[in-house]
Design a protein around this nucleic acid. Structure first.
Lengths: 243, 243
DNA sequence: GGAAAGTTTTTGGCATACCACATGCCAGAA
DNA sequence: TTCTGGCATGTGGTATGCCAAAAACTTTCC
């Protein structure tokens, strides 16, 4: 490897200064297809119909304007994620999770989030922890969460994601996001329920207080119990959602 | 779109009741390639060479005797797993993890395993818990773990996997297995170290005791602290492994 | 009529051809 | 000798076409 002699930095070409921006690498069709399909799957309500939702390679390739090859690669990736399942000569079906699977995922989420809380007590900055309260600053006596379920649900998700992020652990962040994507299909049906919403906010504040107090064990426990509470709720009341 | 006539659901074939198992769909080339490549990647020592290990689609397709298409689909899956990273027109490289990434993964593992321990105290059968001791029954005063590092390391992994399995949580099992696959490359270099091995076995026994006692909080704490101890160990002593 | 047999259509799996871009080598200019 | 542009070559990306199996549809025959 030859050393580059630091001669004159640039030849004195005045025109070299023209605004040249790095050209965009622009993602491949494979990745574009992956993103598009993933979004579509997350958006559709797969539990509203009795029979499973099927996908068709050729139809998709036509809809997206690319050939089947990148579509198939995207499908292979989605299958790794557990969003679809392809059966040879039958079709590609969007995976429907059972209630116990969802509960199981929420438990894993609880595990990861409690670890995040633990880490936060030892590394996060005070101001970042306090900032978590902002997600709920719009809610109060005259703006109750249980009266604005939709709005609260969004704040809820944002809070949890921000919380995990504070751990500065990429693995925890990624794993949790993956789990949330799978669970989210139900969230609009379960998290938002009035009876749970009422207890949710105080618990969140309790977690933040423990974090601020740098009480590792307490923060971990509160984070865990809060999310395990959701798991128990889904387990108890989610039956009607899985007709 | 033509309506599908709901004719008779099933013909009454009495002989359909004999134990016919769906004939093996005999995995596709895509999946075979995925398995083969995954195994090969896990087996290779990617940290021994300075420059990254590269894969070549065409070479692989020739070696495995299939076309590039299934190979590419397998690569796409491995990329989802985080084992490889493909850069357009440059190549496919086996991902090398940094020390902090490994430590991060071990922390997530600790989170999941402590949740598993928690669940086990409430659901597992006594005999299954007790059976966990068997993994270490060969070790004693005249057969010290620190003198049979390789053997102990295997028992160690088997123990942890059996432990997680007892939780009967597919999500915890899968997530942990994935993490272990990534961490394992280091395990032979770190877990097996004498100084840590000596403290490992007593900690394992401590976990088992807490499980048997159905002490949820204690079991969770011991499982967590044990694995966090490994994380701390790697963080402190693993530097030389990431030259 | 209706069921069995035959035919067409659908659908994912795979192979192959070609494309675009990154690199490296090299001849020719400076 | 050094630098520069062109060209050969390597590598992943994409488009197509064909195949086999399963499902859907038609025809035939009792």
């Amino acid at each position: 490897m030859s050393q580059r002699k630091p001669t004159k930095a640039l030849p004195n070409m005045a025109e070299a200064d023209i605004a040249i921006v790095r050209i965009a690498p622009e993602s491949s069709f494979k990745n574009k297809a992956y993103d598009a399909l993933k979004e579509a799957i997350l958006k559709m309500d797969i539990y509203s119909t009795p029979e499973p939702v099927m996908l068709d390679e050729r139809a998709l390739s036509e809809r997206l304007g690319v050939s089947r090859t990148p579509i198939r690669e995207a499908i292979a990736m989605l299958e790794q994620d557990g969003f679809v399942k392809t059966v040879p000569r039958r079709g590609i079906m969007v995976v429907r999770r059972t209630k116990s699977e969802i509960v199981d995922m929420i438990r894993a989420w609880a595990a990861l989030e409690s670890m995040a809380a633990r880490l936060i007590t030892t590394t996060a900055r005070k101001k970042d922890i306090t900032a978590l309260r902002d997600f709920f600053k719009d809610f109060g006596k005259d703006h109750l969460p249980e009266d604005h379920v939709e709005e609260y649900s969004k704040a809820n998700i944002a809070f949890h994601q921000a919380l995990i992020s504070l751990s500065e652990s990429p693995v925890l962040v990624d794993l949790t996001n993956d789990l949330l994507l799978h669970v989210r299909g139900y969230r609009q049906l379960t998290i938002g329920r009035k009876d749970r919403t009422a207890t949710s906010l105080p618990e969140h504040l309790g977690i933040i207080e423990a974090l601020e107090a740098r009480d590792t064990e307490l923060a971990e426990k509160r984070a865990r119990d809060h999310t395990l509470g959701l798991a128990a709720y889904v387990e108890a009341h989610g039956q009607e959602l899985f007709t």
